Simulated scan of single mutants.
Amino acid sequence: MSQILFVAFGTPVSVAILAMSLSGLAFVLLVLTLSLGASGRRRDAAEAVARQADLQEKLADLARAHAEVTGRVRSMGEILGSRQADLARFVAEQLESVGSRVGRSLEDQSRNSSESLGKLNERLAVIDAAQARLTGLTEEVIGLKDILANKQARGAFGQGRMEAIVRDALPGNAYEFQYTLSNRCRPDCVIRLPGDDRVMVVDAKFPLEAFVALKDAQDGEARKIAAARVRADVGRHIADIKERYFVAGETQDIAILFVPSESLYADLAEHFEDVVQKAHTNRIVIVSPSLLVMAVQVMQALVRDARVREQAHIIQVEVRRLVEDVVRLRQRVGKLSAHFGQAQEDIAGIVISADKIAKSGERIDMLDFEQSPSAKPQAEFALGGLGKAAE
């Protein structure tokens, strides 16, 4: 135990001294630890108390906040309840308004739909009628096409149109259909002009096959061939009219070739001017239905003028009688004027007499019958003057 372990600061240190030193150090450490633990426990207790007080304060604050939140939640619930009631009432009003508007809109749409359906039915009825008319017109066009396809039927069609135009404009003695000339040729119609024994020939047989071929041509070569055929057919028909219907001393120097279609005449005048000029050179006038109407109207005016000239002597007699009646009327009007003058003079005399009578009546009314006897001669004299004035 007395063994020296080491020397510290000049002092030898043995095992016993070291053990005692360690024991004392341990005791000091224990005391320090106990003192520190007690002070720590006191400090922990103080801190715990402080923390508890702080916790209680926070709990109190939390309780107050909870109370405030509860109050606010309650007030907010009340506000939300009232707002919900207002919202429900507003939604109900809006739904009712929307329902009424939707109802009115549905009624308007239903009424408009009914009116539109009514108008649509009317238009459908009109369309049905138009379709029926169109169907009838289609059938007529098909029939017209069939007529124009047949040469004899086409001739009858052109003859019918020409006869209708001539018959409507001229008197019966100014034309004749299927008239026989001296060369035994029978033109479709002849028209007699006033003051001339010669008749004007009207032909209604126009060649149509070449025009149909020209219309149906698909290329330039086909159109060229069809145009050459048109020139050949129309030129041959013009030559036939010139050869058959020009009879010296019996027919006029001009003949009429009737084309029964305005479109055909327009195509002929526009694309085949040489053919038209050839017809004019041969004294043949090509006319459409409208031009034939104008020509017949001119002839009608000529016939009317001729009739007026034929009846000129009758018109002169009637005018002479009219002049005599006017002279007689003038004489009678003069006599009537003289009678009116005499009547005016008589009426003027009657007016003068009436004025005199009125003045005499006024003088009588102004007499005073209560005067003295010396005034009687004057009254008698006035009465005598009144009688003379009356006479």
Rank of each mutant, 00 (worst) to 15 (best):
E93F: 09
A132C: 02
G103M: 00
E140A: 09
Q131V: 15
E107G: 03
L117K: 02
Q94T: 09
L95N: 08
Q94I: 05
N112E: 15
S75L: 08
A88D: 10
R111C: 01
S97M: 05
R123N: 09
E78Q: 13
R111A: 05
S100T: 01
L80H: 07
M76Y: 14
A129T: 14
N121P: 02
I142C: 03
E93H: 15
M76L: 13
T70C: 01
D128S: 09
E93W: 09
E122A: 10
V69K: 05
G81D: 11
R111V: 05
L80F: 06
S116E: 05
L80N: 12
I142W: 00
R133V: 13
V91M: 03
S110L: 01
A125E: 15
V73Q: 12
I142V: 04
F90M: 11
E93A: 10
G118V: 01
E93T: 14
R104I: 09
S82H: 07
S105F: 02
I79M: 02
L134R: 06
V102E: 05
S114L: 04
R104N: 08
R72C: 07
S116W: 03
E140T: 03
T135L: 06
A92I: 04
V91K: 13
T138C: 01
R89K: 08
L120G: 08
T135C: 00
